[in-house]
């Protein structure tokens, strides 16, 4: 087999390496506040990567992806408070709720593509939000559900607090990124990119593209559920804002800002948005404006996202 063309070490390798070292080694030297922000980055990073499976790889632009994240979080919240369920049952329940919902909704949405997919996922996302808001006896409505116990204690870590939880989240993040990286390099992962590139040709080659699209939707829902479970434990409460349209579109922004079909890019996008939001808003109430400017600049200068800077552009 021929070696890939020899190139100078890509800047991406350097950045990814430095980033990994930072995530691994820096937290003990950071304040609890920054550790908290990094925890958000890795959890939302999982979520952004899961959406990247859909947007970047299969080419399905979902605007309701926060729904699975939120439903899994509600699963944990409801089981661990209302029903006083154990940690295993709560996590399993959250995962099954989010993934099962993706399996169900996938049956509806995976028949359509492009802007129709965007619209129907957005509509379903709003239905889920409405449910979380209105199904008060179960979800607590607008007030949400508070009092979710700490995950570090539940699983018997010797220490609790921001740093142990961070490393727990980092382990989950590492497992998810490895799984997703293998997934996109797997035969199945390649079929998703084939659907993105030319779905009719995939069909004539013998692929049931509906099934592949559906499975990718379920996979993305499963990883989003993992993120939702971690988010519920991180915040200690759940509320309808987890799965509203703002959450879904911010997530969409993370993927497009960071660079779709790269997995790492969306993590960077998540990091950029979390940090920008929190650092900027300490100085100005106009931080949304700044985020908007960052986004416009990215579109103009790196339309394929930050992580694709300098790569060939798609026509």
């Amino acid at each position: 087999m021929a070696e890939p063309r020899a190139t100078a070490p890509d800047w991406r390798l350097v950045v990814a390496g430095l980033g990994a070292v930072f995530l691994l080694a820096a937290p003990p030297f950071l304040s609890a506040y920054w550790v908290g922000l990094l925890t958000q980055v890795v959890i939302l990073g999982i979520l952004a990567m899961s959406l990247d499976l859909l947007i970047g790889y299969t080419g399905l632009p979902s605007l309701g992806h926060a729904g699975f994240f939120g439903v899994a979080a509600y699963g944990v919240g409801i089981l661990s408070t209302t029903y006083q369920a154990g940690v295993v049952a709560s996590i399993a329940g959250g995962f099954i709720a989010g993934t099962g919902l993706a399996a169900l909704l996938g049956l509806i949405v995976s028949h359509v593509r492009d802007v129709y997919f965007l619209m129907i996922t957005m509509a379903l996302g709003m239905v889920l939000w409405g449910l979380s808001f209105r199904w008060i006896p179960v979800t607590g409505g607008d007030n949400g559900i508070a009092g979710i116990p700490r995950l570090e204690t539940l699983i018997g870590l010797p220490a609790t607090g921001p740093i142990p939880f961070y490393y727990l989240a980092l382990v989950v993040f590492a497992a998810c990124i490895v799984l997703m990286m293998v997934l996109v390099k797997s035969p199945f992962g390649l079929t998703l990119q084939g659907i993105r590139e030319h779905e009719p040709r995939m069909r004539s080659l013998g692929f049931n593209t509906w099934l592949h699209g559906y499975l990718s939707y379920v996979c993305a829902g499963a990883f989003a559920s993992v993120a939702g479970i971690m988010w519920a434990y991180y915040n200690g409460f759940v509320s309808p804002t987890y799965l509203d349209l703002t959450a879904s579109s911010e997530l969409f922004l993370m993927v497009t800002l960071g660079g779709p079909a790269t997995l790492v890019g969306p993590v960077i996008g998540a990091g950029a948005i979390v940090i920008l939001k929190n650092v900027m808003s300490a100085y100005t109430a106009r931080w949304l404006l700044i985020l908007g400017i960052v986004y416009i600049v990215t579109i103009l200068w790196a339309p394929q996202g930050l992580w694709n800077l300098g790569r060939h552009r798609r026509s």
């Binding site: 304040s31 506040y33 949400g144 915040n235 200690g236 509320s239 987890y242 929190n278 808003s281 300490a282």
Partner: peptide, 13 residues
Amino acid sequence: PAVGLTKARKLVE
């Protein structure tokens, strides 16, 4: 709410 909690953590921690 989640933003509020993040800001509370920032203020406290």
